[in-house]
């Protein structure tokens, strides 16, 4: 079978993919590594003939830069808060959906809707829901409190500034958590429901014969048999969480923070892109590599924890 004509043909068919991959995937891996270890690398300067010393200055600068630690903090908080909430909610919804017959397809479609949205566009909708229009911070009066504050006030609470001037970091993070969870649910529900539907019905029949209570069925049959899918959504959730960026742009705009404190909610990815646009590619590369290592470590850690609990 393997004759030279076949070889030649295979490489011909593969050539467009290989050329593009070499330029836009393989070369970047080496070049990004190279730039990260060239002190203060910038493309404009490099084009102008400047040379750079080999060293780890970029990494030191990234770590010493206090805003980078803020980015890391925001990213980590968002990750740690949203993944457990969205996974638990998705699991509950998937189990509930799996247990009903009428309306199942309709509800499934509704729960998938946030997936087919543009995260910037719907971020703007969430922003208006939390937004206070015409707010006077001294007299605490506003034309429009925003629907979320209206609901809080309806239940006797007090409206607060979520994303506007004078809002606190905690309030900003709360808004982001709500939005990210809302956005993350569809994918997780889809995967978990798919997993549930592939569980052999015999396990449940056996449990029914034994008269096992529902809660026990959930913890002893459903969750163990679903554990590979749970592991998958948790790991992808963490990876996605560490790359959070555009959902924040959706709500806060490119300022990445409330009007009086721009950049307050910047994330790791945001930091990398800022450095990139300012022609500080060495710094950007170092930041991206640090992000990569963090994701790798978190994933390996997750794998290790999960391996103890996953039943394949």
């Amino acid at each position: 079978m393997v004759d030279s004509k076949h070889q030649w043909k295979a490489w011909l068919y593969l050539s467009p993919a290989i050329i593009l991959l070499l330029v836009f995937t393989v070369w970047p891996i080496f070049n990004t590594l190279r730039m990260a270890f060239l002190n203060g690398y910038g493309n404009m300067a490099a084009m102008g003939g400047a040379t750079f010393q080999f060293g780890i200055e970029n990494f030191l600068k990234v770590i010493e830069y206090d805003k980078f630690l803020d980015c890391l903090k925001t990213t980590a908080i968002l990750c740690v808060a949203t993944v457990p909430i969205s996974t638990t909610l998705a699991l509950l919804i998937a189990v509930a959906l799996n247990s009903i017959k009428p309306l199942q397809k309709t509800l499934q479609t509704i729960f998938f809707l946030p997936y087919v949205t543009n995260s910037i566009a719907i971020g703007m909708v969430f922003a208006t829901m939390f937004n206070i229009v015409g707010y006077n911070p001294v007299e605490k009066v506003a034309d429009t409190w925003g629907i979320i504050n209206n609901v809080i006030q309806f239940f006797g609470g007090e409206g607060i500034s979520w994303i506007n001037q004078g809002s606190t970091y905690t309030a900003n993070i709360a808004v982001m958590i709500v939005y990210i969870v809302w956005n993350a649910l569809p994918f997780k529900i889809l995967i978990l429901l798919g997993g549930l539907q592939s569980i052999n019905k015999q396990y449940y029949d056996a449990a029914k014969v034994d008269g096992t209570p529902k809660a026990r069925v959930l913890t002893r049959i459903t969750i163990p048999l679903l554990s590979p899918m749970l592991a998958y959504v948790i790991i992808t959730g963490f990876i996605g969480g560490f790359k959070e960026y555009s959902s924040i742009v959706g709500i806060f705009g490119e300022k990445m923070g409330p009007p009086d404190d721009a950049g307050r909610l910047n994330t790791m990815v945001g930091f990398v892109y800022d450095a990139l646009e300012k022609d500080r590619q060495g710094l950007a590369s170092a930041g991206a590599l640090i992000l990569f290592v963090i994701i790798l470590v978190v994933t390996l850690f997750n794998n290790k924890v999960i391996k103890k609990h996953v039943h394949y």
Binding site: M1, V2, H6, Q7, K9, A10, W11, Y13, L14, L21, F24, T25, V26, W27, P28, I29, N31, T32, M35, I239, K243, V269, V272, Y273, L276, Q281, A284, S285, A288, L289, L291, F292, I295
Partner: peptide, 28 residues
């Protein structure tokens, strides 16, 4: 099609999927 190094090449392609896109973006 059969060609030399097929499995190696395919494995190498799959390996690139593990790297986060941000690393490519900078050089691109």
């Amino acid at each position: 099609l059969e060609f030399k190094g097929k499995e190696t090449l395919f494995g190498a392609l799959l390996a690139t999927m593990m790297i986060p896109g941000e690393l490519f973006t900078i050089t691109n």
